[in-house]
Design a protein around this nucleic acid. Structure first.
Ligand SMILES: [Mn+2]
Ligand SMILES: [Mn+2]
Ligand SMILES: [Zn+2]
Ligand SMILES: [Zn+2]
Lengths: 142, 142
DNA sequence: CATTTACATTAAAACAATTCTAAACTGTTG
DNA sequence: CAACAGTTTAGAATTGTTTTAATGTAAATG
């Protein structure tokens, strides 16, 4: 099947024209069968190294932000060093491996649903997400 | 009671000598009856404005990091713009008000305890924390 | 089809948070 | 007091991110 037209649609939905650069980014993000987590730096490296392409940082940031705004990507905050993005846009929880700095999806089967009994008055709950930090047993957790 | 000796002890425990600047920081962090959340920028502002003191940024960062390492402060990741710190070092959950960018402790009474059924093999769970993002009902959530 | 216009890409500059550096300072110890 | 270890500081450097402004591209207009 023609993925290009899917990417084109996603770009249009995000308010962007389907350019060569943006289609390349789409291919990296949306063609893998499995969802994954990445930083802008990861993505830039892949574009440079694996694709031997050159897409300017500004274009990468613009495109990623447009997708995030539209809901085609999710941003995950693990630490304040950098932003992580997630191609799995469903509401879900994460393990964060402090040894490897790796972010791993927590299947809904692996956790009981979280029940909030009392909310802030006048506010609506937008999301409930759990972050489980893990590390090797015999590790010094700084 | 003499808080100074408590602060001195905390500093020593964190591997730092009790200097005038560091004791000032201790007072701001540990004398309030209620715990609170702050950014380095918040803290710097308080020192400058309310205390009319001048403590260099480097000293502030050093001291906060030493306390964090020792476990006298906790770092909370909400977004990647800046780090939030918490004087409540117990494991607990947070509401984050997207309208005001305010971080609010979620009392343990307000949430059922989170039950993880399956963990990553060979890893130990270091913490389980829930982040509940809230916003005004009639708000555009970008 | 030529012209206008809107949108894109880019390199580089600007920016903000954080970390590092190196020199001056302080307090303790021999 | 002299030597030393640790501290403070201003400012420089670094890092991730955003903005700018010049140039390019391609859809829309007539
Ligand atoms: Mn950090
Ligand atoms: Mn952000
Ligand atoms: Zn995920
Ligand atoms: Zn808290």
């Amino acid at each position: 099947m023609n993925n290009i037209s899917i990417y084109t649609e996603k770009l249009r939905e995000s308010g962007l024209r389907p350019t060569r650069q943006r289609l390349k980014i789409c291919e990296l993000l949306f063609s893998p069968e499995k969802t994954f987590h990445f930083t802008i730096n990861d993505l830039t490296k892949i574009i440079e190294d694996k694709l031997s392409e050159k897409i300017s940082l500004a274009t990468i940031y613009n495109t990623i932000h447009a997708f995030k705004k539209k809901g085609y990507l999710k941003e995950i905050s693990i630490n304040s060093d950098k932003s992580y993005f997630d191609t799995n846009v469903t509401e879900h929880h994460h393990f964060f491996d402090e040894d490897t700095n790796e972010l791993i999806d927590c299947s809904n089967d692996d956790i009981d649903s979280v029940n909030i009994k009392k909310n802030i008055t006048g506010k609506k709950i937008k999301s409930i997400e759990v972050l489980i930090k893990v590390a090797s047993d015999n590790q010094n957790q700084n």
